[in-house]
């Protein structure tokens, strides 16, 4: 299953709930405001790092660039585009954590 999260972890517990129930190795994709959690050095880094232990973590490049975060992400987070997003959906059933 592909877990899609769109909320900033600083505002809402969507990412936390997602990590709590997601099965091991299930990919997590951060889109929209959720990419704020992937910024290096922020308070959410611990949460993202814990996710990286059990899951591949992706973040949408358009949302990262729009927020001025390009090149400043927690190591291990993979940056992908919309075409890669489609590929992930093709490979896994999606669940969106709004």
């Amino acid at each position: 299953m592909l877990h899609i999260v769109n909320k900033s972890p600083y505002m809402k517990s969507s990412l936390e709930s997602c990590i709590r129930v997601a099965q091991k190795d299930a990919p997590i994709l951060l889109i929209e405001d959720a990419v704020l959690g992937a910024a290096a050095g922020g308070g959410a880094e611990t949460l993202v790092k814990s996710a990286l232990k059990d899951h591949p973590v992706y973040a949408l490049s358009a949302d990262i660039s729009a927020r001025g975060l390009a090149g400043n992400l927690t190591p291990g987070v993979k940056v992908i585009d919309y075409a890669d997003f489609v590929d992930l959906v093709e490979q896994h059933k999606p669940m969106t954590w709004l």
């Binding site: 769109n6 889109i31 929209e32 585009d81």
Partner: peptide, 18 residues
């Protein structure tokens, strides 16, 4: 942003032949 992300996603899916 939901409608924008959905649009970009649909565009990319169509481009891939889905």
């Amino acid at each position: 942003e939901a409608s924008d992300t959905a649009y970009k996603f649909v565009e990319a899916a169509l481009a891939k032949g889905h």
